[in-house]
Design a protein around this nucleic acid. Structure first.
Length: 280
DNA sequence: CGACTTTGACCGGCGC
DNA sequence: GCGCCGGTCAAAGTCG
């Protein structure tokens, strides 16, 4: 009945519902801008990662993995970790937003709680600020025009970044995004745009910026994980090029169809096999 | 009219 | 302690 009527995420992380976030092509940014290099410090064995994700989703233990992954994310700048994580460890917990923290919930009856359950979700929840009361004691209740939830430490969600060669900054990925900010980044002539999933129950965010090294390369960093289907998203269907992208990665050398598919949907010149391209 | 983008300001973390 | 910088907010503007 209603448990899978489209809007609500299925009870649990079914492979077709919670997208393993796009595709973190393991691209070591060449000389990378410090702002992103940390993200790229991870070198996933994406093949395994994807498999792990799909297979592991249904396992009850993924909760722990999520937390673990979250920790990994926080260790970001540890080069020693690069290439050390096995995909199953690092990606299986790709979970983020909708589960972060406590997880999942899966709340068969309603997905709403899922979001709120995350104590660390300080940044978002803008939709329904429960009570930012934390006033932190510093600010007078006098309406600080821009009062933020203080006192709460911002814990980042697991992030995945990938580079795509494209002329457009904002690539279609099957989800609707609302831009909530743009900032000039240091060491880069290009601004960085901040997007948030328009789904009120979803706190996934993504940053989009162009590589200062190669302006044709768009660096997209996802934070969190969708807990809903993309727009017009047929269950299990790949409409999202990033998802397709993922599929492509699973068969980097034997999926000509996917390549064609991508080409059809997205005229831009996407670099699918960046492992090769960037490796040069 | 609602949804989305733009943009300036604010806040917190971090390095010096 | 101070300043820089990334990230976010929210008012105003734009568009369909």
């Amino acid at each position: 009945m209603g448990d899978e009527e489209g809007v609500d995420p299925p009870t649990d992380f079914a492979p077709d519902s919670s997208w393993p976030l796009p595709v973190p092509v393991p691209v070591p940014v060449p000389g990378g801008p410090d702002s992103v290099s940390d993200t790229f410090n991870y070198f996933f064995d994406w093949d395994s990662a994807m498999l792990s994700e799909f297979e592991g989703n249904l396992q009850p233990g993924h909760t722990e993995e999520i937390e673990r992954f979250d920790q990994l994310d926080r260790t970001e700048t540890r080069p020693d970790l690069a290439g050390t994580f096995s995909a199953s460890e690092s990606f299986a917990g790709g979970g983020g937003s909708c589960v972060s923290g406590s997880v999942t919930s899966s709340n068969p009856g309603g997905s709403t709680d899922v979001l709120i359950s995350n104590p660390s979700m300080s940044s978002s929840s803008s939709e329904d600020p429960p009570e930012k009361s934390t006033g932190s004691g510093g600010k007078p209740s006098e309406i600080p025009s821009k009062v933020k939830k203080k006192g709460q430490k911002r814990i980042r969600q697991p992030r995945f970044a990938f580079m795509t060669k494209s002329e457009v900054d904002h690539l279609e990925d099957g989800y609707r995004w609302r831009k909530y900010g743009q900032k000039a980044v240091k060491n880069s002539p290009f601004p960085r745009s901040y997007y948030r999933c328009t789904n009120s129950k979803c706190t996934v965010k993504k940053r989009v910026e162009r590589s200062s090294d190669d302006s044709t390369i768009v660096i997209t960093t996802y934070e969190g994980q969708h807990c809903h289907h993309g727009v017009g998203f047929p269950r299990g269907g790949f409409i999202n090029h990033e998802a397709s992208f993922a599929g492509q990665l699973k068969h980097p050398h034997s999926s000509p169809q996917m390549t064609g598919y991508l080409g059809t949907l997205f005229p831009q010149e996407y670099v699918i096999d960046e492992k090769e391209t960037m490796a040069k």
